[in-house]
Design a protein around this nucleic acid. Structure first.
Lengths: 331, 331
DNA sequence: TTGTAGGCGTTATCAC
DNA sequence: GTGATAACGCCTACAA
């Protein structure tokens, strides 16, 4: 009871196998009657084209590798969006989880590209910036987040403009002393956020206690607060993500600082827990699934040598909560 | 500059293409000298077997679909472990993210099985219990967590015995009033935890305020606490996971209840945030990545008609923290 | 509008 | 030990 082939369909429909192929691929000129008959038979016997045979003939594997790191929660949503678009475009998306440094990953990615098994590779976890597919392989490597040639961040993942909004809004509310707790600078998004922070602080002439951090983990946020010299005015902490922010909350509690009087803090990602801490964390809600879709659309477009659809903005919005004293009533 | 084929290797090595195939697959009797020469040439010119051609000939796609739901963070780790094992076993793991009810997923899974594209399907997100591959397809469907025929939970994901430990330990510490906030009973793990809770409470003759819940979300935990009638003794809350537990924390804060005097709570999953809430959440740390490996090993074993390696226990351990008053000093 | 024929790169069955 | 040779299921000139 093996799978029916296009020959079986042809036989049952009383046509040649070529005609079946034409019908299924929409090529050639097939009469409506024939087309309908073939389609009917195919559906009836549950014919499914054999991908392996098709790949062999077309020399296109139809496979895309998605490179994931370990443990970043939002990557799961990104993968979901990416694999959704890949499937719609007729590609199979395989996830590869590669631990280690960006260089480690870069090596593995190059090997995957050289393997000839994949038409494209989407890197969600960070890889070295100048990673290009090896010569002789026509595998397209597309990072989910990048800078363009002029160091403007590209793609929704690297859009850090709302960091500026955080700083501006808090400054307008009277805050003068800021500090940024950044993610690892392997990440384009972390670099973009740090850059946006620096720009805003300098532009507004605010006092900055500097950029600290270097990981996405809560302990880094806690440590940062514990290590801060005592302050006589409220500190506004711009954390790179919600994990760092909850660490900040913990550090503040351990120092006996209360929010929002001694300290205010913003996060990023809108993880569910942030709405249930006390105080709840002001953050940026981002549609990761859609971001994953867009990244994969860029890759698919590159594979088809078409231009990707323009990326309308609007994937992010600020959620003001108790950790900043719930600021913007209007706006 | 297309990829070299086994014919190229054969020509360069001065042997027949058949011999190259023998060398690469370890079949037939090939002399050491020949083998070494072939292997040398293959490595030199960067030969990689063409998967599509191989699949076509062997009638094995080498592909496994992994069914994920939306938004459960730990699924990411499970996938990482599963895809690791799949790759080692020579399979390509493709993740499919299917939203909706278990029934929705079941339908899609059946379709995937019938498509003939996959040799196996690993379901991480819940699907209907009695899901079996359609006749005529030899696609193996293996759930990551299941009950066996006698309703004992199978697989590390469904092991809820530590719920019993929570209840026993808290009872030994003097707690008499318990309540369980359960996850959605689509999940084998949620059902297993609820069952373990009920068993322990009855066995020890404790007072139970019942089983409430029905989702994994923090809001459910918060709501549960807000809806609880006022109590004159400490309530011990056994939450189905850390998200529920942080919701409990929030609800308690809103009611002005303080921990661990008015309420104690346990979570499950050891999400990072749980160590940084105030109070930090007592929970169960589980090696999801290893759990994913084991699940995939079961599937791979089923595909190869071998018996899976025995699953030593020891994937979980309790992490006592402030939300229970840090109980077990010894043991 | 439809059919014939050849080949994609591999594995497997035979001979030698 | 090694080598012809025939599929596997599909696509696509080219012929009819």
């Amino acid at each position: 009871m093996s799978m029916p082939t296009s020959r079986d369909v042809a036989r049952l429909a009383g046509v040649s196998q070529t005609t079946v192929s034409y019908v299924l691929n929409g090529r050639g000129n097939v009469s409506d009657a024939t087309r309908e008959r073939v389609l009917g038979i195919a559906a009836e016997i549950g014919y499914r084209p054999n991908q392996a045979a098709r790949s062999m003939r077309t020399r296109r594997s139809g496979r895309i590798a998605v490179i994931m790191g370990a443990g970043i929660e939002s990557h799961m949503q990104l993968l979901a969006g990416a694999s959704e678009v890949a499937q719609q475009a007729g590609y199979a998306a395989e996830s590869h989880h590669i631990d280690g440094t960006p260089d480690d990953r870069g090596e593995r990615v190059l090997d995957l590209a050289a393997s000839g098994q994949y038409e494209g590779i989407l890197t969600i976890a960070p890889v070295p910036d100048e990673l290009a597919a090896p010569v002789g392989s026509d595998c397209v490597i597309v990072p989910a987040a990048t800078f363009d040639a002029e160091l403007h961040s590209m793609g929704p993942l690297a859009d850090a403009t709302l960091i500026g909004t955080f700083v501006e809004t808090l400054a307008a509310a009277g805050h003068r002393t800021f500090v940024h707790i950044a993610g690892p600078d392997d990440y384009v998004s972390a670099r973009a956020r740090a850059a946006a922070y620096t720009e805003a602080v300098e532009r507004l002439g605010l006092r900055s206690l500097g950029l600290i951090g270097g990981s996405w983990g809560a302990e880094t946020g806690r440590r940062a607060i514990l290590d801060l010299p005592a302050q006589d005015e409220t500190i506004a902490v711009i954390a790179g993500n919600d994990d760092l922010a909850i660490g900040v909350l913990r550090g503040a509690a351990e120092r006996g600082w209360s929010l929002p009087d001694d300290l205010v803090v913003t996060g990023w990602d809108n993880h569910e827990f942030g709405a249930y801490t006390t105080p709840a964390i002001t953050t940026v809600a981002m549609d990761f699934r859609e971001a994953g879709r867009r990244a994969m659309r860029r890759l698919v477009a590159a594979l088809g040598h078409t231009t990707p659809p323009p990326e309308e903005q609007g994937l992010m919005r600020i959620v003001w909560r108790e950790s900043t004293g719930e600021l913007p009533t209007a706006g």
